[in-house]
Design a protein around this nucleic acid. Structure first.
Lengths: 209, 209
DNA sequence: ACCTGAACACCGTTCAAGT
DNA sequence: ACCTGAACACCGTTCAAGT
């Protein structure tokens, strides 16, 4: 059996297997995906551009949960952006273990780039200058991903020792639901900043040169 | 030559070599460090707890640039925290390529845990409840690292295509120095939130259940 | 076109052997 | 105690061979 009459593999199943491994064990490898699909490692390279290609498939799957429709709605730009940010965060909160992986690799997935294209269009339509757009989008992304990352490893991030009793106590006292509050505050502050920027007001900190 | 009269290796040089590789090429491996130090790969394991140990050495080197002295100063708690956050950000801004690596691995370095211990003490002394401390610290950390991460790969993060002309234009128009402004705004908002939290006021978003 | 099987260079880790 | 050299299981990628 060299070439099966009906293909054993497709991008759908490769992406699904990769995301599942990532959700279960926090990482994945190309051979692991091949094993899960009962296929030889090299076979994946006929459907996907290597490991980087698998990461893009995973990105597409996670980002599929984002509702980009709000970006082209008739609502005011700030409400559209707010709804997008909330949906964005919810999609990544469903797969927090994927965030570190996706934060460090460049975005090539066309479906995702298309959403950014629409977000850029929204901001330009709202009256922002071209050079203001990317800082705003990356700032919003930092907020969204940073707060979603909190959900990934809330306690395992610090390993308290006998020399750090207060830290150990603070970690033990930490409850759930605070990440949400932090996100709400950050989002409110971000939108206020963006409105101020559009209206030409100087909403900068104490260190403006 | 099996055991040299004076050791060829020490944790100092291992950490320095690892950080240098990370700064130059964005990643490192144990064999690469060994090669740079003219030594066999296995030799590193006599001084360091494997790759994870090297990461902790790198964390210590990067965090050595943080001025933790402000945490035990006599100034008001919010000014102390602000100074710490600025110093924290500056230290990581010097090695932005290290951020993704350090964000995904648990903190074990005693010198770093000691700084967090002091930060916890500061917040408890300021009157915060134990369960409020970690959310505040992680929120501040998200802000600091998120904005420092902007400095790592500002343009390489998205790969615009013919299908995304607006995104391409926004990327091209993007100038430097905006990450600083975003950090200032985020920091101001964070401190305002923390003050409100301490005073018992409800500084939450529109979705408080 | 699509899968196998084998190859390659690389990785992290361990460990007996030497001094 | 500290380094070598070799081993092990794993990784990502390529490619001739088969249908």
């Amino acid at each position: 059996m060299a070439r099966p009459r009906t293909p054993l593999l497709d991008r759908e199943r490769i992406g699904a297997a990769g995301l599942q491994l990532l959700a279960e064990q926090g990482e994945f490898s190309v051979p692991q995906i091949a094993r899960a699909l009962g296929v030889q490692t090299g076979s994946l390279y006929h459907h996907v551009d290597g490991r980087a290609g698998v990461i893009e498939l995973i990105r597409e799957r996670v980002c599929a949960g984002i509702d980009g429709g709000t970006l082209s709605s008739l609502e005011p730009w700030d409400r559209s952006l707010e709804a997008w940010a909330r949906s964005y965060r919810a999609a990544f909160a469903a797969y927090p273990r994927a965030i570190p992986l996706l934060m460090t690799t460049p975005v090539r997935a066309p479906a995702v780039l298309a959403q950014y294209e629409r977000a850029v269009a929204l901001l330009l339509r709202a009256g922002f200058a071209a050079e203001q757009v990317m800082p705003l989008l990356t700032g919003l992304e930092n907020l969204v991903l940073g707060s979603a990352l909190d959900l990934a490893a809330p306690d395992a991030m610090w390993e308290p020792t006998p020399g750090t009793p207060l830290l150990a106590r603070a970690l033990a006292a930490q409850g759930p639901g605070r990440a949400e509050a932090a996100f709400e505050v950050g989002l409110t502050a971000f939108l206020a900043y963006a409105r101020g920027l559009r209206d030409g007001a100087a909403v900068t900190g104490p260190c403006t040169p």
